[in-house]
Simulated assay, not measured.
Amino acid sequence: MKFVLAPDSFKESMTAVEAVAAMRRGVLSVFPDADCVGVPMADGGEGTTEALVGALGGSVVSAPVHDALGRPVQARYGYVAHERLAIIEIAAAAGITLVALADRDPKITSSYGVGELIGHALALGATRFIVGLGGSATNDGGAGMLEALGARLLDDSGADLPRGGAALVRLHRIDLSGFDARLAGSTFQIASDVTNPLVGAAGASAVFGPQKGADPATVRELDAALGVYATVIAALTGADVSARPGAGAAGGLGAAFLAFFPAELRSGVDLVMDAVRLADLMAGADFVFTGEGSIDSQTLSGKTPLGVAEAAGLRGVPVIAFAGRIGSGAEVLYQHGFAALVPILPGVSDLPSALADGAANLERAVATTCRLLALPRRPATV
């Protein structure tokens, strides 16, 4: 039998790589001769680097960069040398988790470190990039990233602007004469399920600014600044990114990628599935096992298990999903290609124990499921 094991991470309990290992142990305890194809998955957010590095045989690289407040940090990204592919999560450099709650100020935080990561990968020889947008502490429209890659953001006197989203209200011109020429020969696939525009009531500042420390007055200030930024971009490139879906992702980093990079915004899970060639790996499979920490009706909004189930459904392969929690409305997933939803907890448990025992519980649940699959089918009696 052939099993494709394609789980996402089980947040705070297992990485996707660890979940694959637990699933494999469970399958082999019942079917010792089974062909288990492990494909760690992600949806473009946290864990994407590890999942793709594990699936594509890459390595993890550490680079000295600056966080959103300009402090030196070591950020990690993935690199697959034989494909000249860099896998970057912007949160590794400009992540909100790197900034203490009391220090969060989207008026001054910068995406400069993201540009430093891209520059480091270019120096390694990368020509292809997968960039996961999510978890940023910034609201600068990607201006800091552009600066790190050689662009200059100038006021009406020709002076360089300070970093941060608030300063963009004084932006007069963007000088790209020093912009890294290697970018033009590269491709960027941007993993994001955010469809928010750059500005306005559904824009980066209004929707995501409060999560990053913006009060209502600051939201208005930042939205106005990004409006100026969009106007300057339009004058330079002829492209209006202000209302473009996805431009507001990661505090407006989406806008910078769309305006200045050879970039394509894509659904995170679809991008990852294509990168690991999941469809090809499903050929001849008897079952696909997927899962993540929680499965409920929200799984339909672009989560990894749904993407895996849709891909398997096109090939007629049944999908079984495992989760630490099967939540409200999960039964709707049976209408979207799932053969079974299996909770992994063996009984009542407190959260710390459930998280700590996640791998053992997943292995046990997979083994139990495989025992059911191994039951002989008896002919119906009259």
Rank of each mutant, 00 (worst) to 15 (best):
Leu183Phe: 09
Leu300Val: 00
Leu52Thr: 03
Leu271Pro: 08
Ile88Lys: 15
Ala380Asp: 05
Pro352Tyr: 05
Ala356Arg: 10
Ala235Leu: 10
Ser353His: 12
Leu98Ile: 00
Pro210Lys: 06
Val317Met: 07
Gly268Asn: 03
Leu133Asp: 11
Gln335Ile: 00
Thr369Ser: 09
Leu161Thr: 14
Ala255Thr: 01
His172Lys: 15
Ser294Asp: 00
Phe338Ala: 09
Gly165His: 15
Thr187Leu: 11
Gly150Arg: 01
Leu258Pro: 10
Gly47Gln: 06
Val60Ile: 10
Arg277Trp: 05
Val27Leu: 08
Ala249Pro: 11
Phe338Lys: 05
Arg25Lys: 08
Gly26Arg: 04
Gly238Ile: 11
Ala359Gly: 13
Phe261Trp: 01
Val276Phe: 07
Glu310Ile: 01
Ala217Arg: 14
Val276Leu: 12
Pro40Gly: 04
Asp8Glu: 13
Ala55Met: 06
Val332Tyr: 02
Asn196Pro: 01
Leu281Asn: 09
Ala137His: 00
Ala359Asn: 01
Val232Ser: 15
Leu222Ile: 14
Ser242Gly: 13
Ser111Asp: 04
Gly47Asn: 11
Thr187Tyr: 09
Arg277His: 13
Val319Ala: 08
Ile295Met: 14
Phe31Ile: 09
Phe31Lys: 14
Gly165Ile: 15
Phe338Tyr: 05
Pro197Asp: 12
Gly164Gln: 01
Leu222Cys: 15
Asp103Arg: 00
Ala279Ile: 07
Gly254His: 06
Leu222Asn: 10
Ala235Pro: 03
Glu310Val: 04
